[in-house]
Amino acid sequence: MPLLKVRNVTKCFGGLVAVNNISLEIRHGETLALVGPNGAGKTTLFNLLNGVFPADEGQIIFEDVDVTHFPAYRRAHLGIGRTFQIPRPFNSATVRENIAIGGMFGAAGSEIDVDRAMAMADHYIEVMGLSPHRDKPAGGLTPIEKKLVEIARALAMKPRLLLMDEAMAGMNPKDIDKMVAFLKEIRETEGIAIVAMVEHIMRAVSGLAERVLVMHQGAKLVDEPTREALSDPRVIEVYLGKPPEADHAHG
């Protein structure tokens, strides 16, 4: 029984088919890298998965529940968490309050009161190394710190599936390695399945993901284990264009 099952999902904006008939499955606790060049439809797919807008066609099933027509907040209650490409913390709230909000309203939200959420927040502040910023408004943090706050906020939601939009963009190699190690640990300790959207950073993909899904022009191009994907000529083509010899061969 997969955690998430997506069947033939399509989304159009006017004449543009942003996501074209995509099907995929995500198993409990696995990590999937969602790769593709700019404009491939990755963010749209994320928005469909967590209900920012509804799909035009197709079906999305999360843990046996058909969530196709569920609004975003109900999907969050079921256990779909999300971070944004450009972090969107609640700027005037403190770091602690931001993370606590995730705990209060997330998957376990109905049983968590404000005090417990604050205690949870303190735990994730520790884990993410945000202690010096605990009581500062999130709006004043650096972009990387905001990103950490957002990840902590999403983790506090106790998701079963975490959608991470460009979690490592803008980080230096050292930070990326730290983040990869951290995500691996989270996966082990909390049993979260992660879909990490990455544009280029193969370093992160190879270190973290078991499987790679490559999108191209709204459609699914490749869905295979990381090792094969990294040497798949179709993937290389999407990123680098056709090698000249190939042109000769066909011509």
Binding site: N50, G51, V52, P71, A72, Y73, A76, H77, R82, F84, R88, F90, N91, S92, A93, E97, I101, G102, F105, G106, A107, G109, R153, M157
Partner: peptide, 14 residues
């Protein structure tokens, strides 16, 4: 507080 700051992000937070 969350919806005042960012209504869409608030929805995603549940």
């Amino acid at each position: 507080l969350a919806l005042r700051e960012d209504e869409d992000a608030a929805k995603v937070m549940g």
